[in-house]
């Protein structure tokens, strides 16, 4: 209320033109230019969707692995061998991320594991909402392992939390052992690093200890497993790690 004369400043002015229907025009003050301090995290929406996925994984005791690497490091072969080795012991579900094609989903389906393919089109990474939608198609069972094979790319997927329990980065010995320094964001955000294709070590210049030392400069908490998915050497360590981490999610009572 106006303190000068007691009129109500809250009532909008009503203006009627002669000859017009008796419909009052409401004139309110034009909106003013506004300065907004936002301090808003640009990835907030993705992080919220990731938190939602994580809550779902936690409540159903699903071990969710976000498997990341450059293209050609052997993620899909590793996954095929993992499913075949584990399928009698623990159910494994797969979300396949690629820009195009059903190739990888078809390979996984041949192992007998339930799989959905997410094609990102021109997108270079999976995001938490894509995973959320994939989960509604896949319905992973409680106390299972879900592997999300991300788009082969060591750059972009680093920034997008999917709600995973662990991020596992695969590097193969046919790549440079300085990958962790060249793509530090991915190695900094990973929990476990798999060094794959170790059967090829005699033929390449890759130095395992050097690669680990570089990776630890970026992330001193990073753990390592060396293996050859095609020949089987070291696979036991990886399979045991998965089983232990899955079992750790189930409360002891």
């Amino acid at each position: 209320m106006c303190t000068t004369c007691g009129c109500s400043a809250d009532e909008p002015a009503s203006i009627t033109l002669p000859g017009q229907p008796a419909r009052p025009l409401v004139v309110s003050g034009a909106p003013q230019k506004q300065f907004r301090v936002l301090e808003r995290n640009v990835l907030h929406k993705n992080d919220q969707a990731a938190a939602h996925n994580r809550q779902h994984f936690d409540s159903s005791q699903v071990l969710a692995i976000n498997l990341v690497s450059s293209p050609g490091s052997g993620k899909t072969t590793l996954l095929e061998k993992t499913i075949l080795a584990l399928k009698e012991q623990v159910p494994v579900y797969v979300i396949e991320g690629d820009q195009q094609t059903m190739q990888d989903a078809n390979r996984i389906q041949a192992t007998g594991a339930p799989v959905v393919q997410v094609n990102t089109g021109n997108g270079c990474h999976l995001d938490a909402d894509m995973v959320h939608r994939a989960l509604h198609a896949l319905h992973p069972a409680a106390q299972s392992i879900l592997v999300i094979e991300n788009v082969g790319n060591l750059v972009c997927p680093a920034l997008f939390d999917l709600g995973e329990t662990y991020r596992v980065v695969v590097m193969s010995v046919t790549e440079g052992d300085d990958k962790p320094l060249k793509y530090p964001n991915m190695f900094e955000s990973a929990h476990l690093c798999i060094i794959n294709k170790t059967d090829l070590l005699p033929y390449v210049d890759f130095k395992v200890e050097q690669a680990k030392e570089y990776a630890l400069r970026v992330n001193h908490r990073l753990q390592f497993i060396e293996l050859s998915a095609t020949k089987g050497a070291g696979m036991e360590n990886w399979l045991n790690w998965l089983k232990q981490e899955q079992a750790a999610l189930i409360p002891v009572n």
């Binding site: 230019k33 300065f35 907004r36 301090v37 936002l38 301090e39 640009v42 920034l159 400069r217 001193h220």
Partner: peptide
């Protein structure tokens, strides 16, 4: 040493907007 905890540098934020 390389063992460290990051404090700052990973921000991707909208600080402010002037809306017209």
């Amino acid at each position: 040493g390389f063992r460290k905890e990051l404090l700052q540098g990973k921000e991707i934020r909208i600080k402010s907007l002037e809306i017209l």
